[in-house]
């Protein structure tokens, strides 16, 4: 499953970079993302992702590894984890790119979500809709955080 968004932000890349690398703040934009802890700044984090999908509740302890950083224009992270109860594994690769614009910057986010396991086998279609909604909500919250008009 692939998702993408792009928005124009009034802040220049360097200022936007500072906001986006405040992990505690940005993680609040991700629906269901809780207990975020920094293991090593801009390298490793842990979190718990809680989701309700149809009749199932999923709780995925996730490891987040920052795979590539190129300040102040690109960060690629990979979050992965496994829900113990349903044996469902979740992996999300997120690429955030900041491009200078005439005024401010353009923020581009591309996500690849991979779900495997019982929940995926039962109904990836439902998961896909849920993931789409989550991504939309992430976009809204991020816009709110950055003060961008929706």
């Amino acid at each position: 499953m692939e998702f993408a968004m792009s928005l124009e932000v009034a802040l220049p890349p360097a200022a936007l970079w500072a906001v986006l690398t405040d992990v505690a703040q940005v993680s609040q934009c991700i629906p269901g993302c809780e207990e975020v802890e920094e293991v090593e700044r801009l390298a490793r984090y842990t979190a718990v992702v809680k989701q309700k999908i149809g009749p199932f509740r999923m709780e995925v302890p996730a490891e987040i590894v920052v795979e590539e950083v190129c300040e102040p224009s690109l960060v690629r992270t990979r979050a992965s984890g496994r829900d113990r109860i349903t044996g469902t594994t979740l992996a999300v690769t997120l690429v955030v790119t900041l491009v200078p614009a005439d005024v401010g910057s353009v923020l581009e986010v591309a996500a690849v979500v991979d779900v495997q396991g019982r929940l995926a086998t039962l109904g990836l279609a439902i998961i896909k809709r849920k993931a789409e909604r989550n991504f939309e909500e992430f976009e809204q919250r991020l816009k709110a955080l950055l003060g961008v008009m929706a």
Partner: peptide, 13 residues
């Protein structure tokens, strides 16, 4: 299939 994962392998879908 989506990236190899069956998407609708149930009589419901």
């Amino acid at each position: 299939f989506e990236d190899g994962q069956p998407v609708n392998a149930s009589p419901v879908d």
